[in-house]
Simulated scan of single mutants.
Amino acid sequence: MNYDFLQLEQKNQVATVWLNRAELHNAFNTKVIEELDACFTALNSRDDIRVVILAGRGKSFSAGADLNWMKQAGQASIEDNEADALKLAKMLQSLATLKQPTIARVHGIAFGGGMGLASACDICVASTDAKFATSEVRLGLAPSTISPYVIRAIGARQASRYFLTAERINVEQAKAIGLVHEISTPESLDAKVDEIVQNILLGGPEAQASSKALIRMVDHQEVTEDLLHKTAQHIAHVRQGAEAKNGLTAFLNKQSPAWIKATAEQ
């Protein structure tokens, strides 16, 4: 697929989705959102892709929504305005529910929707120059569509501050509140991302997809009898899969499982 505002690179089992609107700090509009959604949907069907990295060309990861696009959307009818916002919400859901582990490679600014993209990824690695913000209230807006992912990442208590103040969050603060997992110098950012990629590739792809689904199922749920049965059913289903059988047999025989062999052959 050809994209106007994205670049998709593949190196063995790793796909990197580059936001490629550098002159506007990778701000997104309807076209960028449509391309991201289509790209994530296509990657989700790819068994040859084990990890997806989301990154930005130029000086920034993403400045969030293009303000001219937001202004135009605000002047549309309520029905058209809602439909437009729903496209962004569904794109973020496509990213958050990818079967592959996802890594946000953040440098420069990640404001508004850019912070939403970073939050929707499973793992966030940021350079020392990274800055985050839910900046919407300073424009008379609210961080509506990104809120499920930002609140999941930093919690409601931290969101209560940053949604209301729109303060810029430096990378150390971002790590302290749970948004960022690892900090790296700009020169070592790719090496740090690759270090995490290599650890991901040691796990079974089906097991990782099941683990992502498990987190969504269990997060913020009370430990009830129903939840106990759901988690038991989950592991019972996973254990009966071919990947689990191969992985357990390989471990007991001190061999490499099939997914490690497949990686080594590339």
Rank of each mutant, 00 (worst) to 15 (best):
I154F: 08
L214M: 13
I183E: 04
I169C: 01
D194H: 07
R138M: 05
G140D: 05
A213H: 11
T224H: 03
A209G: 05
A159V: 09
L201G: 14
I154D: 05
K230W: 08
V171C: 15
P186L: 05
V137K: 12
Y149T: 02
R138L: 08
E187S: 11
L201A: 13
S210F: 08
A159D: 00
E172H: 11
A207Y: 00
E206D: 02
I151Y: 01
A159P: 00
Q208C: 00
L189G: 08
A153H: 02
R152S: 10
S188N: 14
E172N: 13
G155D: 12
H220P: 00
M217P: 10
T185F: 09
L139S: 14
E187I: 11
E172T: 13
H229V: 08
V171Y: 03
R216P: 00
A174D: 02
S211Y: 02
S211Q: 03
A133H: 07
P143S: 12
N199C: 03
L227S: 09
A156K: 15
Q221C: 08
E206P: 01
E225C: 13
K175T: 14
S210T: 08
T165E: 06
E167Y: 08
G140Q: 09
Q208T: 04
A207K: 04
K230Y: 05
V193L: 03
E182Q: 15
S184D: 06
T165P: 09
G203K: 07
P148K: 07
R168A: 10
Y149M: 00
P205I: 02
T185H: 12
K192W: 05
I183Y: 04
P205N: 06
A207V: 01
E167K: 14
K192Q: 14
V218N: 05
L201M: 11
N170Q: 03
D219P: 00
M217W: 02
A209W: 10
S160R: 10
S160V: 01
F163R: 03
E167F: 14
A176Q: 14
H220W: 01
A207S: 08
I196W: 02
L228E: 15
E222D: 15
A142K: 09
K192T: 15
A166V: 03
T224G: 02
V197P: 07
A209Y: 08
L189I: 10
N199G: 13
D226A: 07
K212I: 11
A166D: 08
V197D: 03
N199D: 10
L179R: 01
Y149S: 05
K230R: 12
E172S: 12
S160H: 01
V180T: 03
E206H: 11
V193M: 04
A209D: 10
I154H: 05
Q221L: 02
E136G: 00
E172I: 11
S147H: 02
S135Q: 08
R138T: 04
S188K: 15
I146H: 00
A159L: 07
L164K: 08
